[in-house]
């Protein structure tokens, strides 16, 4: 089992200006070139470092490309059935309330097979954090249509484009969950430019803070790219995301309720 990174000796007269987060192992990510999983992994790890949570956090690995996050995070971790991460997280939190729990789920996992589990975890106000990676396609199983695949988008199971008459409409998870009284903090972000990345990190931090303060369910959705199954170069994929996903899945805070001090955010 890969452990935390070995300490590095700093030569005289030099200082550390950037380092791999302690919450990550020394194992290189295995994602496709251009994939945004790596960026998101790192941002979560940085926030865990900054909040000092690495000794009391359990990561829940989904089924999908991110199934191996237990190799990448230097944290306790559990790998669970497809879509069930919020239910497993519920069990962990109920049995061990002071353990920090996050799920890391793709769009098939969370919005397809696991929509019931995430919805009810949110409705219960379960005190855990879900990170939802939406790249509008099933990545690990070879690029099939996902619940978030856009109208007209070509996938291996919608070769002529998603046909609304046959396949129905994409699901907007943040909008859906934000209608639930139990959901405390719900935001959609992206990680395709430095400004967006800094913003995404703040969203991760706020989500963890909600959980640390025992204020209930938090979810951050990341609009992401899948160059491999979109059939695009990474820069083209980013462009496609901006032109197609962002209009359908607008960024923003969809729910921020019951903040400390009783202030209700818009």
């Amino acid at each position: 089992m890969p452990e935390t990174q070995p300490p590095v000796e700093i030569p005289e007269g030099m200082e550390v200006v950037a380092t791999r987060p302690r919450a990550l192992t020394d194992v290189p990510f295995t994602y496709c070139p251009g994939c945004t999983h790596g960026t998101i992994h790192r941002l979560i790890a940085e926030v865990i470092d900054e909040l000092g949570l690495d000794d009391r956090t359990v990561a829940i690995a989904p089924v999908g490309c991110a199934v191996w996050i237990y190799e990448f995070y230097a944290l306790d971790a559990i790998q669970v059935p497809h879509g069930r991460a919020p239910a497993v997280g519920t069990g962990i939190k109920r049995a061990s309330p002071d353990t920090m729990v996050f799920t890391y789920q793709g769009d098939g996992d969370l919005a397809g097979i696991g929509l019931a589990e995430v919805t009810h975890a949110a409705a219960r106000g379960e005190n855990l954090t879900c990170f939802f990676i939406n790249n509008a396609v099933y990545g690990m199983t070879q690029g099939q249509m996902a619940p978030t695949t856009l109208p007209g988008q070509k996938t291996t199971t919608s070769p002529r484009g998603r046909d609304i008459a046959r396949d129905g409409h994409p699901i907007r998870v943040c909008e859906l969950l934000s209608t639930l009284d139990g959901a405390t903090y719900v935001e959609r972000v992206m990680v395709t430019d430095p400004k967006a990345i800094r913003h995404a990190k703040r969203a991760i931090r706020r989500a963890f803070e909600v959980q640390m303060e025992g204020r209930g369910f938090s979810l951050v959705e990341f609009l992401s790219i899948c160059p491999t199954w979109w059939g695009k170069k990474p820069d083209e994929a980013v462009e496609w995301l901006r032109e197609n996903m962002m209009p359908y899945y607008p960024l923003g805070v969809f729910k921020s309720a019951g903040q400390a001090g009783g202030e209700q955010a818009a």
Binding site: I78, V80, A87, A95, S96, A116
Partner: peptide, 15 residues
């Protein structure tokens, strides 16, 4: 489905 996975989660803490 959720119940058995909640069991999985709680049991994973040793409870």
């Amino acid at each position: 489905v959720a119940a058995i996975n909640m069991v999985f989660g709680a049991a994973s803490t040793g409870a």
